[in-house]
Design a protein around this nucleic acid. Structure first.
Lengths: 324, 324
DNA sequence: TTGTACGCGTTATCAT
DNA sequence: ATGATAACGCGTACAA
């Protein structure tokens, strides 16, 4: 049925070893033999079985990607770049959505290990540090520092938070709200909050903080959060949202309430997502493509057993546009 | 290093066959043996090697997904559901972005076949019919009817086009524009165009058609298209955009030009994407989750050699909101 | 330069 | 009920 290396060998009249050699271009082979083997392969439409190769080589050329939710634009864009660089380096990508569900994340890790993936990029973090350390597989994480031995890639969250808060203050906001996903998750994104708090406190600016609950990752969960904020604090004149999606909800609520942006309320988002409807939003742009690239390349280094940068913190950029 | 079935066998003092049997729960085994084997597995922290299993069983439990671009919200949401159902049925997902690049699509297909995936879901279609037919792998396509033998999943594009056009006419638009991606791609989405044309022509309504060029899939490509439309036809009072992203650009341009929506210009989108900034858009909603579910389930049927529905056309729904 | 033989980890086919 | 042994398809010492 399926044509194997053996069929090629028989057809050409050589051993499987020789065929394998030309396949991998190893050792010394006469050009004429190379030719004949190649022709036989083409003729029989031979395709090497990657499963068998992986089993034999103990290397699958597959990397696993675990993220909360591919339908979230930030992760969708990140994944696009991760796929790009993985492909470029000859790796395939196994996509895993954890949905921030601890059980599913755990199952996926076991599944990936069983599937002999060569490494994992973790963009979802619902388990304990102990769980991650016991993975025993080359690992790179995004936006989370799990342990000193696991390399992570992040952007400069503190600086992002500082830039956003400073801008709102400079634009003379008197009462600023900070909106975010759950702060209990031990993400580096929490540093945006830290920067916000330190800044407003040291400058003596009135402020409010609101966060979604633990499982709130879906777009619809943001609505009550935002509505509640404006209901309880109608005098808010500046909002720092820790994601562009959240900021978008704020803009929408302002429209609904008839608050002029940026005249009455100024809004800063976070992420710098490329999306329709976000072109006017002032935001902190993360270097998403670079994060994807380094996640892949550092993982490859890690897999190769080479020295890998443990802490990678990329610069962010303030995109000052029309909502401030 | 890695603990194998053999280690378990030795530890328990049985043959590998027996261990394999309890692993797969096949044949007759005494409960006491099951117990002892289980314990040994737990103790040694044994995990079966899926690669070896796949090689032996000739089944990998992996399905390949080829789409144009995961960062496009429609495909991101579709992928989310595909991953959900694949996981539910015990399958892993290999993610492939073709970027509408013929070469990459082709390479990915070869790669997937070499990786012994059990089947492929095709959401990208840049090759010729002949190429697809020669894939020789269980296949299900989205929004494209490639050949009578390849099952496809689509929503009712003709009806969607009809609903949108009828709505604009009913709302007394006098000059309607149709905006779309490239029509030369032989996608079923072309039926939206057909419905549009038939409707405006039979009703004698003035109309304009604009499409992006072949490679235009990126969000930024829409901008000149939309600007050109309004520049050349300032008297447009209705727009049917064949995607929500495109519609979003139209809304943006209207805002820029000071055209009131829906008072001066009415806009209908397509897809029904869940995204910030699209809550107010009147649109034709595709059943994305259902499309993902059926793509997976029909592929599984196909793989199992069972009777598979060849043509699946799902109903669409008009979401009449604030832009009409 | 090429071939033999074994290993990769698991399942399947026959035995017993 | 349990065990040898041969696949699965390929890579690679080691030998020649």
């Amino acid at each position: 049925m399926t044509v194997t290396i053996k069929d090629i060998a028989e057809k050409v009249g050589v051993s499987v070893t020789t065929v394998s050699r030309v396949l991998n271009n190893r050792g010394y082979l006469s050009d004429s033999l190379k030719q004949r083997v190649q022709e036989a392969m083409d003729e029989l439409n031979y395709q090497p079985n990657e499963l068998a190769r992986s089993l034999s080589r103990r290397k699958s050329h597959v990397i696993g990607l675990i993220i909360p939710d591919i339908s979230h634009p930030f992760f969708a864009q990140l994944t696009k770049h991760i796929e790009y660089y993985a492909y470029k380096h000859g790796y395939k990508l196994m996509l895993c959505n954890s949905l921030l569900h601890r059980q599913k994340e755990k199952e996926y890790i076991d599944l990936l290990r069983a599937s002999q993936v060569d490494g994992i990029i973790m963009g979802s973090h619902t388990m304990t540090v102990k769980d991650y350390v016991s993975i025993r597989l080359p690992l790179v994480t995004l936006d989370r520092q799990i342990s000193p031995s696991i390399p992570f890639i992040a952007s400069d969250n503190y600086r992002g938070g500082k830039l956003a808060t400073d801008l709102l203050i400079r634009k003379s906001c008197r009462k600023i709200a900070y909106l975010s996903g759950n702060l209990r998750l031990h993400l580096l994104a929490k540093q945006r909050y830290d920067a916000f708090m330190e800044t407003v406190q040291s400058r003596g600016v009135e402020h409010v903080v609101r966060e979604t609950d633990l499982n709130g990752f879906k777009y619809k969960d943001y609505e009550p959060l935002v509505q509640g904020l404006f209901a309880e604090h109608p005098d808010i004149d500046g909002v720092f949202a820790s994601s562009d999606m959240l900021a978008q909800q704020v803009l929408r609520e302002c429209r609904r309430l008839g608050r002029a942006v940026p005249e009455q309320v100024k809004v800063v988002g976070y992420d710098g997502i490329q999306a329709a409807g976000l072109d006017e939003l002032t935001t902190i742009q993360q270097p998403i493509k670079e994060m994807g690239r380094l996640a892949v390349e550092h993982l490859l280094l890690h897999m190769a057993g080479e020295e890998t940068p443990l802490e990678t913190i990329l610069p962010v950029r303030l995109l000052e546009r029309e909502t401030t």
